[in-house]
Simulated scan of single mutants.
Amino acid sequence: MSRNEKKPGRTTRAEGCALFQYRLSSDLLTVILCSRGGALETLAIDIGNTRASWACFKGSAITSRGQLESFDGIGSVDLSWGDIETIGIGSVDPDACRRLLAVLESVTGIVPIQMTNGAEVPIPILLPDPASVGTDRALNALAWSRREPGRGAVILDAGTALTVDAVSNAGEFLGGWIAPGLDLSARALATGTALLPTAERSVAEGPWGTDTSSATSGGIAILLAGGARALRDRVLGGLDADVATVVTGGDGDRISSLLGPEVLHLPHLTLEGIALGAHERQGGVGD
């Protein structure tokens, strides 16, 4: 039986709703999968450090998607269900991934394909310990290498952490850099000082901030953009000419706007990697 073959006696819920409940840390996340008809192929679920997102793919096209900003309280996702043949889960939280995997398998009869470290992603990782590479970093590299075969890239993923990674022209993951992301930097500044508030998610116009809020929010964003640019340039120095600069992640829009017009913003790159990785892991070929 293949990893995604439906178990005997189990049926996929093509109609109605299936209520999935699983615990992420101490919080309860509820995912509601509802049928609306149509032939869907792959459900990709990305569990990050502070967010969970999902997308349904028909071939390479996203037919529906959603995102949970945090795991606080109860979130519900109304997901077009249809005839899903493959489920892929990419997660930087292996415990959460295992719990979700068990629930998905018990309700749908499909065994999801899980990727919780770089060694489980079908891409060459030219490092001594591929399993130590974060899943999201490897998935981004996989998605880019399938989008643009033969062209390398610097991939900046702006989430809880900011990662800046190198992908060769041959589609190999070479390594990269890891730094705190925008929200993590804001929380660290607020908790590490007596009077500074948590920074807002905006950057004021003008040469400087005119109050504490604008000074902290702008200072963090501009500092991070400058650091991202410096790390990007350092990675570019080790790659061949004519490579792309790609930005993804929950704060990708903010980072890309501060890096310049040459940046390619691909907000769903990790989800693409999950869908591709799931198909390649089971030996299938996407449409």
Rank of each mutant, 00 (worst) to 15 (best):
V77Y: 08
Q282C: 13
P124L: 01
V203I: 15
G48P: 06
N4W: 05
E262L: 10
N117W: 00
G209L: 07
R187Y: 02
S64G: 11
V121G: 06
R151V: 15
A161N: 10
V107K: 13
G181M: 01
R98H: 14
E120R: 09
L269Q: 13
L266V: 15
A61P: 00
V107A: 12
A204V: 12
G82N: 08
N169C: 08
Q21D: 13
R99V: 02
R3T: 13
L236E: 15
G192H: 13
L236S: 12
S25Q: 10
P267W: 03
V285M: 06
E69C: 04
V154E: 08
S132T: 14
I255N: 05
D27P: 00
P112N: 08
R234C: 03
I110T: 08
L156K: 08
A225T: 10
G66W: 04
P197H: 04
D240W: 00
P122V: 02
A18Y: 00
S2I: 02
L139Q: 01
D253N: 02
V235Y: 05
E172V: 01
Q114K: 05
S2Q: 11
P8I: 06
G286W: 09
W81R: 02
E205V: 04
A230C: 03
V77D: 12
R229F: 00
K58Y: 01
E172G: 11
A119E: 13
A39N: 12
A228G: 15
L127M: 14
T42S: 06
A278S: 13
E262P: 00
S80T: 12
V121M: 04
L101R: 14
N169I: 01
K6P: 08
L258S: 13
C34A: 14
T163L: 06
G109P: 04
V92T: 14
T160G: 08
H265T: 07
L139W: 03
A190N: 13
R23V: 11
T198N: 09
C34K: 15
G66S: 07
R254M: 09
C56P: 01
W81T: 11
E172M: 07
L33M: 12
L104E: 04
I255T: 06
A215C: 14
L142F: 10
A244K: 11
G250S: 06
A55P: 13
